[in-house]
Design a protein around this nucleic acid. Structure first.
Lengths: 232, 232
DNA sequence: TCATGTATAATTGTATACAATAAAACATCT
DNA sequence: AGATGTTTTATTGTATACAATTATACATGA
């Protein structure tokens, strides 16, 4: 089990607070709540059938995950992401994903490598069919396997958080079938470099993969989406 | 004002919760609480003269800052940092500090550059005198100026968090006068590269600076401190 | 009409009471 | 003595009451 899963379990998904946290997190990431929308404690509580206490505690966590911002005595607002933020995130990810791929080359287990291979082959099928939903799922899984395989919980935590952050933007910039195919080919190359034990190449390809993903976003109108927002 | 400061103010230092949060954070970082020590809600509350509610909310935030770990229905425990964690942090920091220095070269203001220069010259004095306390303060400031100057709040947030994390270890690995002098010389080189507008060199030197800092820690017995802990 | 002040309502902040869970102490049996 | 089961205690989880703060609606005057 990856420490990603562990982290979310430690967050106690069976307590009311944990349920509120997970639910709000999902709703924010899926775009149910608009950016800058205010979240009212009682409204959320009533919707989920709980009192304000667990809601408030969930808010504190969501704030530090960067999903909402709490202004004292005022309220909780869904965090806005600017185009500049997206650019910075991909810049940081390109470096860290490269680092992760390098470490994964040295620490990956047989099982993980097999799952990577399976992932790539399965994704090739869905990519050719244009099954975007499955592609998103497989893409997430591919990267999380690497996060787990790098054997660094510090790095894994960072990458998981960024990956989640980026999921919000994916909802807005539509991914094309062409990019799906290209992306999976990049996954295959990374997987093969790792399988061959070539850490340098794995790092280079993973970094490149991020840059390509970002450039694709820009091409698909990333800046159009955010053009009304301040560029900080 | 750097967004570091902003962040901590948003965390509402005048509310009871904010005071509890800041106080506990400081106490954990300063080493008042041992690693793996359990923090009891009522005990903390009584010590600070507040009820459990603000304490609990502060706990949730401390958990996501990685300073404590909360186990549902059990308790809150001060997070342990292993030698492997320290190694990983420095590996990540070496990359991100380099990135930051590169961006800072392009975005730094006149005022910030001047403060960097002043910092380096003042630190040279304190380094020669062996004033370790002032050195720590100046070192913190030097890096935070760069975090601010890179003009990326995503990157700044990351680096600030890591920098804080590392502060806990600094309490344990004593810094020598020699390292203080060497470190400040590295700061000077970075500053000069930025002043000269040489982004490549600034990045290279900042990365090197982190690697040197880490190697110095290892030399000063980093692994001895943590030898009793599991290496994950 | 607009600005200003005041009263009202809505919302967050904190304390506290009670419920649920886990830990500890104790008793009992073999 | 040691293992096991039960009671007691301590601690966390949640709901709710009240206080403090902020936002809104309204009234008043220029």
């Amino acid at each position: 089990m990856s420490s990603y899963d562990v982290k979310k379990e430690v967050t106690d998904k069976y307590s009311l607070r944990g349920r509120v946290f997970n639910r709000l997190r999902e709703d924010i990431l899926s775009g149910k709540y608009e950016e800058h929308e205010e979240l009212k404690e009682v409204a959320i509580g009533e919707e989920l059938g709980v009192s304000r206490t667990p809601v408030r505690e969930a808010f504190r966590q969501l704030e530090l995950e960067g999903l909402i911002q709490i202004i004292p005595n005022k309220g909780a607002y869904v965090t806005g992401i600017t185009a500049k933020d997206v650019k910075d995130i991909y810049m940081i990810r390109s470096s860290l994903e490269g680092m992760c791929a390098r470490l994964a080359t040295e620490n990956i287990t047989e099982e993980q490598l097999e799952e990577l291979e399976e992932n790539v082959y399965l994704a090739a099928f869905h990519a050719s069919k244009g099954h975007m939903e499955q592609m998103t799922e497989l893409d997430n899984r591919f990267h999380h396997i690497l996060y787990d395989a790098c054997n660094s919980k510090m790095l894994e935590r960072l990458l998981v958080d960024f990956h989640q952050y980026v999921a919000r933007i994916r909802q807005k910039t539509l991914s094309t079938k062409e990019r799906g195919i290209a992306s999976n080919n990049e996954h295959r190359q990374i997987m093969e470099a790792i399988k061959a034990g070539n850490a340098d190449e794995a790092e280079r390809l993973a970094t490149l993969h991020m840059n390509n993903a970002y450039n694709n976003m820009v091409k698909n109108g990333l800046y159009d989406i955010y053009k009304n927002e301040e560029q900080e």
